[in-house]
Amino acid sequence: MTTQQPVALVTGASSGIGKEVALRLVDAGYQVVGTSRDASKLTGSDGLTFVDLDVSSDASVAAAVEHVLGQFGRLDVLVNNAGIGSAGAAEELTVAQDQKVIDVNVLGVVRMMKAVLPHMRARGRGRIVNVSSIAGLVPQPHMATYVASKHALEGYSESVDHEVREHGVRVVLVEPGPTSTSFDGAMVRPAVLLPAYAQQRQTFAEVMADSIKDGDDPVTVAKVIVAAVMDTKPKLRYPAGVTAGRVSVLRRFAPARVFDKQIRKINRLAG
């Protein structure tokens, strides 16, 4: 049966930004399906249901999208919010750990988009909102793999948007800055720490803790994501939060030497 209400699928909706997005889309009149690795622990409400989803599994992605289409007969919006971070010097992480981050943050989005695009294209309409980061625009020492994943997401999203726009589908990016969530608790971290990076590691931990403590409320980011969903003339990129807005402007207009110096200053690295 096809519902008359628009339907949104939000990955990583069990907490933080994803949870706030799901609730606000329900308020905006959407039937929302949120996802989690273990949806049995979550309680839905009017307009909000949950389904199991592991974005690193082809079969899980296919099953989740088929569930939505089978239940509602349509899918208007996909919000790719699920993701994981990484912390540690680049040479401290194993290739397997790097692959895990890429598999979730990049290939997880690729899987989701490949699963929903045939339906959206056939209907001649659809909106995909990929939650990136200001790390998709700038470097961040001790988060190289995470940063690489977000840079890749930016390029992939922008490229696919050009492919599908003539079919009534838009792919847009939301770029949050530091946000007060449990993000840092789920980071991939190295098992073996190299003494050469001991001082940088301590400094990074302090910088990260300060940025999370002073970060934006998840509600702030969620409001931007919902705006990106609802915008009748969507932009390609939506910075979310004060820091993200400032960094976006700085990246575009600051001379390379000035920008490089600022990155080292923020991260308390030797000049």
Rank of each mutant, 00 (worst) to 15 (best):
G124S: 01
R127Y: 03
N130Y: 05
V131K: 11
P139G: 03
P141H: 10
M143K: 11
A144K: 01
A148C: 07
H151C: 02
G155Q: 02
E158P: 12
S159F: 15
V160P: 06
H162M: 15
H162G: 11
V164C: 01
R165Q: 12
E166D: 08
H167T: 13
R170S: 15
V171M: 07
E175Q: 09
P176C: 02
P176R: 12
T181L: 03
S182E: 00
A186C: 12
M187T: 12
M187R: 14
V188Q: 04
P190W: 03
A191R: 15
L194M: 04
A196W: 12
Y197S: 11
Y197L: 06
A198S: 14
R201C: 09
F204W: 12
F204Y: 06
V207S: 01
K213T: 12
G215L: 07
D217M: 09
V221F: 03
A222F: 02
K223N: 05
K223M: 06
V226S: 00
V229W: 06
D231F: 10
D231S: 11
T232C: 13
P234Q: 05
P234W: 07
L236M: 13
L236Q: 06
R237Y: 05
R237H: 14
Y238G: 07
P239H: 15
P239R: 07
A240N: 14
A240K: 05
A240G: 10
T243A: 14
A244M: 10
A244I: 12
R246L: 11
R246Y: 09
L250W: 11
R251D: 01
R252T: 09
A254C: 08
P255H: 01
P255R: 00
A256W: 02
A256F: 02
R257G: 01
R257L: 00
F259L: 03
F259E: 00
D260H: 00
D260Y: 00
K261N: 02
Q262S: 12
I266P: 14
L269H: 00
A270P: 00
G271P: 01
